[in-house]
Structures are given as C-alpha cells and as structure tokens.
Design a protein around this nucleic acid. Sequence first.
DNA 1: CTGTTAGCGCTTTCAT
DNA 2: ATGAAAGCGCTAACAG
Lengths: 337, 337
Amino acid sequence: MGKVDLRTLAARLNLSMSTVSRALGDKQDIGASTKKRVLKLARELNYQPNAHAAGLRHRKSKTIGVVVPEIANNFFSLVIDGIHEVAHASGYHVLVYLTHESLHKEINIARHIQNGRVDGLLISISSETVNVDHLREVRNAGLPIVFFDRVSNEMKIPCVTTNDYESAVEATHHLLDAGCKNIVYFSLSHNLSINGKRMKGYLDALRRRKSSASTILQGGNVHEENVNHMIRLLSGKERPDGVFACVEELAIATYEACAHLGLQIPRDVKVICFSNMRVAPLLNPSLTTVRQPALEIGKEAAATLVGLIESNKKSDPGQVKKVIKSDLIERRSTAIV
Amino acid sequence: MGKVDLRTLAARLNLSMSTVSRALGDKQDIGASTKKRVLKLARELNYQPNAHAAGLRHRKSKTIGVVVPEIANNFFSLVIDGIHEVAHASGYHVLVYLTHESLHKEINIARHIQNGRVDGLLISISSETVNVDHLREVRNAGLPIVFFDRVSNEMKIPCVTTNDYESAVEATHHLLDAGCKNIVYFSLSHNLSINGKRMKGYLDALRRRKSSASTILQGGNVHEENVNHMIRLLSGKERPDGVFACVEELAIATYEACAHLGLQIPRDVKVICFSNMRVAPLLNPSLTTVRQPALEIGKEAAATLVGLIESNKKSDPGQVKKVIKSDLIERRSTAIV
DNA sequence: CTGTTAGCGCTTTCAT
DNA sequence: ATGAAAGCGCTAACAG
C-alpha cells in the first residue's frame, strides 16, 4: 500500500492537483460533481493529507503543547484528560512534556517547541521556576501561552486556577472548628503560586480568629523525607493537633507519620488537605479534602488557548484570570475506617 | 523578533543555505571555522529548525504516538512517564491520545495519524477492541506499532507485558493459603488480554489446588455499579471470603462494598489485587497487591518502538514478546489500619 | 570545502 | 470551473 497523496488522486481522476486540493478543502470555485468524485476516491483510498506539508504551508501544526511537572499525579492527569477533550473536539493534537519539577528541563522544552511543532502552550510551571524568561521567549516567538494551576505573576497572560485562597480559609476554619489549637501547615515549595495562595488563606484565617500557634513545615519531592519531617514534628513536646496539607502527597505523608507513631486520625491529629484522588477520602474521612476541579481546569485552559490561537490577534490579550471554584469541603457522613 | 530561518543565517554569514544546513547538521565536508561561525550565530539568534520542513523532507516527525484507554489512571500515567523518559532521551516528542475505552475513538485516532504526524505507535487497546483492522491499516501505512499491557493476539507484532499469568497464580495461592474457601474473581472486560491471563492464572491455581468454589464477577467502567455488584454478592447467603480484583479500581470498589456492609478486611474478606497506586497499600495491608512495573513497561515499549523506527527495515520483526516481571506480592509487615 | 538546484506534499495566487 | 506555477523551510544530490 503506497502512499496516496494529492498527485495520486489527481492522476486517477484526470484532474490537476490544485483542483483536487480545492475539492478536499471545501473551497469555492469547484464543480459539485467534481467535488463528489474527488471525495469519493479520497475516501476509498483513505487519503490522509500530509501533516508536515500542510503545516509548512499554513504555519500551523494543529497541535498544542502541554507542559506539566509530572504526569503520574492524579491532578495533572485529570487536567490532561480535560485538555484532550477540548483539543480533540477542536481538531487539535496534544503533545505532552514533563519537567519533573526541573527548571532546566522546562527551559529546554520551551526552546524545543519554537519550531512550528505546536501552535500554543499550556503550562503549569515547575517548582523551581521563578524567572520566566524562557516563556517570554516562547511568547515572543508568536506562540500564545496559558498558565493553569501553577501560574507565574511575572507574565501577564491568561491563567486558569482555582479559588485556592478561599478554599484554604474554609479548610482552616474546619480545623479550628474541630478544636485544633496547634496547627501545622505542611507546605510545598514557597515559590509555587498555589502554595502561596493556600498558605495565605490559612494564615489569614488563623489571624482572623486570633487563633492558635502555627508551624510551617516545608515539604519536598522526596516522600520519605516528608514522612520523616512530620514524624519529627509529631514527636516533639508540643505535638500539633492539626495538619493542613497543601497537596495530597503531603497528606499521605502525614498519614504515614501518624501510623508510624501510633497516632490516630482524627482523634489525635486532625488532617485536612487539597486532593483529587478518589482514594484519599477512603483512607480516613477526616483526612479529606478540598477537591479541585481538575477536568474543568483542563477544559477551560484548552478552550482559552484554542481561542487565542484561532483569533490570531497579535494584540496581547493581557492577563485574563479565570477562576474555577473548588468543590466545597466534603466529609463523608459514614466513617469508613 | 521575526523568525530566524536558514535563509536569515545564510544571509548574515554570506554563506549559502546548504552550507549553513550542513554546518548545523554536523555533516561531512564542512570547514571547521565555518562551522564554528554558523553554530555561534545560530545560538545567538536562537535558531530553531522548522519541524514541518524537516519532517516533510525526511518523512520523519521525530514523534511517537501513544494511545491509552485513559490517562487518569496511575498505571497508564506511569507508563507514559516511562515512555517519555526514553523518547526524550532519543530526541522524540510524545503525542498522547485517549480512547476512553471506545473502539470508535481508537479507529478514529488510527486514521488520523497516518499522515506523517508520528513515526510509530505505542498502544494499549481499548476494552472494546477485538478486531484490529484499523491497526493493520496503520502498519500497512508503514508505521511500526508496539503493544503494551493490553495486547491483541490478532497481530503478530512486538508487545511488552508483565507476567500476569504467573503473578495471578501466586496471588491466588496467597488467598488460598489465607484459608479462603469461596473466592470471587472480580473481572474486567473479558476480551482484554490482561484479564484473560490473570483469570487463567487464577483458575489454574484453583484447579491445581483442587480448591474452592469460585465466582466470576464482571466489573465495568462505572464505579458505582461495580460497588453495587459487589455489595449484592457479599450480601448473598454464600458470602465469599476472598476477592481477587483484576485491577485496583475493582479492589477499591470491593473496599467500599465491604465498608458499606460493615465487613472487615481482612477479617471477613481477604482481598488481593493488581495495583500501582502507592495509596492502595495504605488502605489496608491485606488488600495489597501485585505491583506492575509501569515505568519499566513504558521505557521498554518506547525503546522497542524507537528501535523499530530507526532501523527502518521493512522486514516484519514478527512477534517479539517482552515480559517484564511484576514485583512479588508485597505485604506490609506493620498493619496500618 | 562550498554553491546551485531540485523537490518533499500541499495551498494559493494568477491565468485561462 | 480548472490548471500552471510558485513557494512554505529544509536537505541532499550534483557540480564545481
């Protein structure tokens, strides 16, 4: 089965390539019957127009790039699912890139996509990313970018996030209402926007209630270290009675630390976290959870980007912030554990 | 910042485009000093060779397509992580496609990639896929394919799987050794290869031990239904005392069913499953688990595909089966729950 | 060692 | 309504 290209079709139909092209492209100035003939044969031979040729001609790839810190993560994979849904519906393909939280890789990726491979970029920046010159470069090359979840304030471009601040306030109130006097905020990298917003919500809520001592415990990428940090903290003399975990990973680390020390959740320690895994609520009803609408974030981000790509106004859209509300904090009525 | 292309570079250096091209391509027949000059300017101007033009010329996209049933799934996202690692190291980009278990979508994807967009395909087929003509078509178009995890025996092409059969035998022995007399096999779609191999291992193990009544419970894609099926089964007169869950999703459904009925795992019901989520072992020590080496599967699959692409021998490689061993069944020595 | 030329497959003027 | 021809950006003969 040799390739079938425009030339093949044209030859078999005794038409010129341009006519065939017009017929397939649904253009003006084409005879109805000719068009029908062309479409028929194209279908028969399963003609697939070469993507490179079309891309070269149009300077469009019909592809969007998605850059995430990691994919083996329920939140990001759900986001990608949402992106996919919208992208596919709009005829776009999805190229996925992983930074593994490395700024170096992020820069590399940014470099390597300025070659027509993608028409735009969706990105959730790595925890190491403070300077965003590499992204400016991408935008200067004419590619629209949309931030999601982890945004940078250094660039005024559209971003899609959740109402982290408000949810964090609410989550903190839950802990306070449950009687916590000594809460730990289990934190992600301090330069991450989501961490910043959640921590601010947390601190503001504490302040507003003129309440409680508070510790900030800095978590990292290494699970075992997170567990050990928490174990150390929970074994201290002033044992915390509440934990606000910035992401699920840290809640799980907390869970393991408690198990290690024989502490019971929620009897000894109340835990609350931002989470997307369906499993977390099963672990312990009180360990849960502000659910982020990952799928919706993905869809919204993709829709925004596709919009930017297709209305190729060079005019900077400026900073359009779309905030998608987290689900309210849920508690299971029936305790499982 | 206008585009910088070969022409730009050539003009600024008073060289011809081909010389510049050669310098950048690290070809023979190029003056050392010229080369240096070219590379220097290219770096300065951040020259990125147009992917479409190169692709058109070489009939290569340096891109591999990955087709998975779903991405919001720890196993598949880990596999993609592995694929990424190898692909990136070999200079390949990764285009991800989701079928959401729909054969229709799978066929569509197969059609839409026969246009030079990808150089090869990694696929884990949907649960609806029995006939694989759409994949034959892809291969006939000259694209190498590698199956991973969920394979089809209809096509003799390389596939990367785990030792499902052996692991299932072993897992079953664990349940029998724990004293189970009435085990349920909680099954996926029957035409999935992984389900077939695991179920066969399960049944063979039972037979070999001349043991136990056994029920096959067919699970599906809808979580609530899975839970309800299991609740119904566990409420029957001959309540099963063991569950072999083909995948983690079904183990979680079982977990919820038990919780709903007030049954304790493992006291009332022993549960074992194939799993990749780090969280499952936390749920209940006895609920665990045959860990599939997802990352390794991804790496191996990608390496195999890249090999096929680069050694562009038209000769059919035939069916090369690579089996990657699952981790042994693990039990946590310390009970957490 | 370097330049000239042709062409990858497609779209799009510009003729007819 | 159709065809001829130019060209997207790059590379690989083929000259020199």
